[in-house]
C-alpha cells in the first residue's frame, strides 16, 4: 500500500540532509512502528509523506497504492487516503471544530467523486464517534484545538481519523504529552480503526504506546535510515537496553 524507496530528503532552506535512503513497505491491515532516537528523521518522514513545505526530495519515491505521493498537493494526498495525526495539532481560532471536520469530509468525498454527506448524517456519525473518544458536544463546537489540553488535542486527531476513514494512517508521536488514561483512550480509538484494508505507520520514541497499539513490524531509524527491522520484540529490546545497544550492533 505505502511504498517508500530509497527516499532522500534535505531541508529546502539549508543544505542539510535528513533522510538518507529510506526503504519501507506498509501492507494493508498491518501496523508498522518506527522507533528511533531524537533527530533520526522520524517526523521528517511523516511531513514529507503528507506534503509539508520546506523539504526537498533529492532522490527516491513514495507511492500510495501505486500513485506518486510526492507529486501531489497535501489535500490530494489526503483525498487519496493518507492521514497524518500531528505530533503538535494546530490551534485554529475562529474555525469551529465541526465546520472544519465537515468541510474536510466533504472536500475529500468530492475529490473522490462521491456524494457529500448531509448535515444530518454528518451530525449522527460524528456524535457517535465523538462519544467513543469521550469528546463532548462542547468540544465539537469550540474552535479547532483552541483551549484543548494535550490529551484533548490527540483525541481530536483520532476523531478526525475516524471521520475521514483514511486507508493509510501515520501517527507522529501520538503518545507525547499523554497520561496513561488518555493514552488508553487514544489507543482504543486507533485499534477500533484497524482492519484488513487499512495500514498504519506509528512513529514513536518510546515503546509504551506499542503496548496499546500492537505493531506487526518494528523498524529502528537512525541518522535518516532504517537500520533494523523486526517483530514486536524489537520494541521491547529498545525499552530494555535503549537505542545505543542496537545502534552499536548495526554500526
Amino acid at each position: 500500500m505505502l511504498e517508500i524507496k530509497n527516499l532522500h530528503v534535505q531541508l529546502e532552506e539549508e543544505d542539510k540532509k535528513i533522510l538518507k535512503g529510506v526503504d519501507l513497505v506498509v501492507e494493508p491491515g498491518k501496523v508498522h512502528a518506527i522507533m528511533g532516537p531524537n533527530g533520526s528523521g522520524k517526523s521528517t518522514l511523516s511531513y514529507v509523506l503528507s506534503g509539508r513545505d520546506g523539504y526537498e526530495v533529492t532522490d527516491g519515491t513514495a507511492t500510495l497504492d501505486g500513485e506518486d505521493l510526492l507529486e501531489m498537493e497535501p489535500e490530494e494526498r489526503a483525498a487519496a487516503g493518507l492521514f497524518l495525526a500531528f505530533q503538535y495539532p494546530v490551534e485554529i481560532p475562529g474555525v469551529g471544530n465541526m465546520t472544519f471536520l465537515r468541510t474536510a469530509v466533504n472536500a475529500q468525498r468530492k475529490a473522490r467523486g462521491q456524494e457529500e454527506m448531509s448535515s444530518t448524517e454528518f451530525l449522527k456519525v460524528i456524535r457517535e464517534k465523538a462519544k467513543e473518544l469521550k469528546i463532548d458536544a462542547e468540544m465539537l463546537k469550540r474552535p479547532v484545538n483552541v483551549g484543548f489540553s494535550g490529551g484533548e488535542k490527540k483525541r481530536n486527531e483520532i476523531l478526525q481519523m475516524a471521520m475521514l476513514e483514511p486507508r493509510m494512517c501515520i501517527l507522529d508521536e501520538t503518545d507525547s504529552g499523554l497520561d496513561v488514561d488518555a493514552m488508553k483512550l487514544v489507543s482504543d480509538g486507533v485499534n477500533a480503526l484497524r482492519d484488513a484494508g487499512r495500514g498504519f505507520l506509528v512513529i514513536t520514541h518510546y515503546q509504551r504506546l506499542l503496548n496499546h497499539i500492537k505493531p506487526d513490524v518494528v523498524h529502528i531509524m537512525s541518522d535518516g535510515r532504517i537500520v533494523k527491522t523486526g517483530g514486536p520484540e524489537l520494541a521491547l529490546e529498545v525499552e530494555e537496553n535503549g537505542y545505543a545497544d542496537i545502534l552499536g550492533e548495526v554500526a
Partner: peptide, 13 residues
C-alpha cells in the same frame, strides 16, 4: 501551519 493542517485533512488550498 494552520493552512497545512487544513490541507492535510483534505481541504483544498
Amino acid at each position: 501551519d494552520m493552512l497545512f493542517y487544513l490541507r492535510a485533512r483534505g481541504v483544498p488550498l
